[in-house]
């Protein structure tokens, strides 16, 4: 019997852990929403729609000292290599999951893939990802310790990239996820932390976030982002 999507995701993480790679990775993307459930155990929080994409951020590719072929590591689970677009970002694809590697884009914007030879993959460089690697939290997924962005960073990052999202459906989905998380953080008593993170951002980034939240109907949120 094929593994369920959740079991398959855990198996992927388990294999990365065994290969000594997981500690160098921060799980970002919609799967975080599911794993935040334990963080928000006492607060009002219901994860929304997640896709098949498991996005793995490598904050410091040069820090990975082990050498492993990730495609080979997951081959017997049925993952095949796929390339995105003409730029050649590697994705490991399975009908239940799509594993992608990301790095924070620094310097001039470029659409060239970022090679990570230690893992035998190309990562996709994206703007603002460095925010997700700050103050990470650790979630217990089965017996594994998985690094996730702090929910405050996750939500603010979603709002930051909102204007870069081309499709209206994605914009709505990201905004909804961000607002739900910010409200759950408020419910958990972490408003001040969110405020601190927001204040630590550059004024350009702060304005982007304010613009993204302009039409959100919430009594609480505007006061955080004054």
């Amino acid at each position: 019997m094929e593994k369920s999507q959740y079991e398959l995701c855990v198996e992927v993480l388990r294999r990365l852990d065994k290969a000594g790679v997981l500690k160098h990775i921060v799980l970002v993307g919609s799967w975080c929403l599911l794993f935040y459930k334990s963080y928000f155990a006492s607060a009002k929080y219901a994860p929304i729609l997640k896709t098949r994409d498991v996005d793995l951020l490598i904050p410091q590719p040069s820090a990975i000292s082990v050498k492993t072929d990730v495609a080979d590591l997951l081959k017997d689970l049925g993952f095949v290599i796929g390339f995105t677009g003409s730029r050649g970002y590697i994705r490991l694809e399975h009908p239940q999951l799509i594993v992608e590697f990301l790095v924070a884009e620094k310097g001039r914007p470029s659409d060239k893939p970022y090679p990570v030879p230690q893992l035998g993959v190309n990562a996709q460089p994206l703007r603002f990802l460095e925010l997700l690697a700050r103050d990470t939290i650790t979630a217990k997924v089965k017996h594994l310790s998985v690094r996730l962005p702090h929910p405050a960073h996750f939500a603010l990052h979603k709002l930051l990239i909102l204007q870069r999202r081309g499709k209206p459906g994605k914009i709505e989905k990201d905004k909804d996820a961000a607002v739900r998380i910010l409200e759950a953080l408020g419910d958990k008593g972490e408003r001040d932390f969110v405020k601190r993170v927001f204040n630590s951002l550059s004024s350009r980034w702060q304005n982007r976030i304010r613009r993204a939240l302009a039409d959100v109907d919430s009594k609480d949120l505007p006061s955080i982002f004054q």
């Binding site: 009908p95 499709k167 459906g169």
Partner: peptide, 14 residues
């Protein structure tokens, strides 16, 4: 729209 967007993305992926 959110649901349609996700479904469209998943269709492209598939």
């Amino acid at each position: 729209n959110v649901l349609k967007g996700v479904l469209k993305e998943e269709l492209d992926n598939s």
